[in-house]
Nucleic acid binder design. Structure first.
Lengths: 216, 216
DNA sequence: TAAATAATAGGTATAAATACGTACTTAATA
DNA sequence: TATTAAGTACGTATTTATACCTATTATTTA
């Protein structure tokens, strides 16, 4: 039987090493390559045509997992991607699935289930670990519950720029200078951001931005 | 030769599994137990007297790595603790070392170096991975460089309480109600926090609080 | 014991953010 | 083509936060 060839993408070497040992212990899975960020992963895929499944972390320097997933699916549609991350927030899940991931598992998964996940995704099927599928199901059953977070991706490009500037701790007037618009426009963007996300002030905005990966 | 008995504390099962395989592959190290947070780690140590080295993550629910380290060193001074985390910020390093950790390594460490680290710490000696020792050295060479972060721990208890409330996005008047003090006192605390940390507004305060582990 | 710090709180003033309404232009879409 | 969303911007008013200053009490430290 042909082994499933995987590419591990995670910025922590010791985590890669550990997962490598776990997957290599499965008879029909092989860790063929690894990368510490999205850019390195893309470089590897450019030069090699032997990967079946990519295990992708989300939080990485250089190129994050969501964007990397999107690019990989565009360039190499046959490669299946399994998100392997510590983020259980719905916004991350939907971002990764929209980007083209087939599966989504958290890092508190057991070795056995991780092996299952890789096999399932390799067959082109979806795989979610329990807590992730619960999140998805509760969203389907109670969509109003998740409206607040759903609207995350509804932020426009300009609003995201403003949000990023706000987290730097600079005033509207300074933000206006950076973005080359009026400070009144910055105010309007801030108001719309708060409205869209159901937040009420700077403090909530920044907590939101950090938790949802708009900064760092 | 007697094996070094270790306790792994990390909230992600797959990470524990991986590190377990790495350490168990070393002839004189053995992963004797594991815990997913500080509380569970303490429970294990209460009932068992067989651990030489604790590998401790920092960010965990229930009881974080810094506090857990402090408690373990007080109760079981013979146990040596190695911090194993993704945080390279100086504030985390000094917090863990002050709490009583002997070593500090990042999760991008190689398997070989991790095994070295465990052996070194087991002998009661300090171990730092390269990037960590560089951070420490640059601090010694240029202390002014780190003044801003040094002052972290200078926040008083009350100031920390206020800081935590601020990150919730509630107003001074609401914070005052929660802490049962005047809103003018809250203002004073906020002003002192900003002054001590060299920050200038709510936005910077929240970014600071999140990055330095005061919340979540 | 003298000095410093923590925790408390008020006066007064300014700066910044938020609320709500309105409005124009352009591009995308039903 | 009519409508919607994005991006721009202003008027006015209110609420919050920040900037100074001062001050009392208790505790800690030099």
């Amino acid at each position: 039987m042909e082994k499933i060839k995987t590419l591990l993408v995670d910025d922590h070497k010791i985590v890669r090493d550990g997962i490598k040992m776990i997957l290599n212990s499965a008879p029909n899975i092989e860790v063929t390559a690894e990368a510490s960020n999205g850019v390195d992963a893309l470089k590897y895929l450019e030069n090699n045509n032997n990967i079946d499944v990519v295990l992708m972390d989300i939080s990485m320097t250089e190129l994050n997992g969501v964007d990397a997933t999107e690019i990989i699916k565009k360039l190499y549609s046959k490669i299946n991607i399994l998100a392997l991350t510590m983020h259980s927030e719905e916004s991350y899940i939907s971002k990764m699935m929209n980007a083209g991931a087939l599966g989504y598992v958290l890092k508190d998964i057991s070795s056995e289930n991780l092996i299952d996940a890789v096999k399932t995704v390799a067959e082109g099927k979806n795989y979610y670990c329990n807590s992730v599928s619960n999140t998805i199901i509760s969203k389907l059953l109670n969509p109003s519950n998740s409206n607040k977070h759903q609207k995350t991706s509804i932020l426009s490009k300009r609003e995201i720029s403003v949000l990023k500037e706000v987290t730097k701790g600079i005033s509207n007037i300074e933000i206006a200078k950076v973005l080359e618009i009026s400070n009144r426009t910055v105010e309007t963007h801030r108001r719309n951001i708060l409205k869209k996300l159901g937040l009420k002030n700077t403090a909530e905005m920044i907590t939101y931005a950090i938790k949802n990966g708009y900064v760092e």
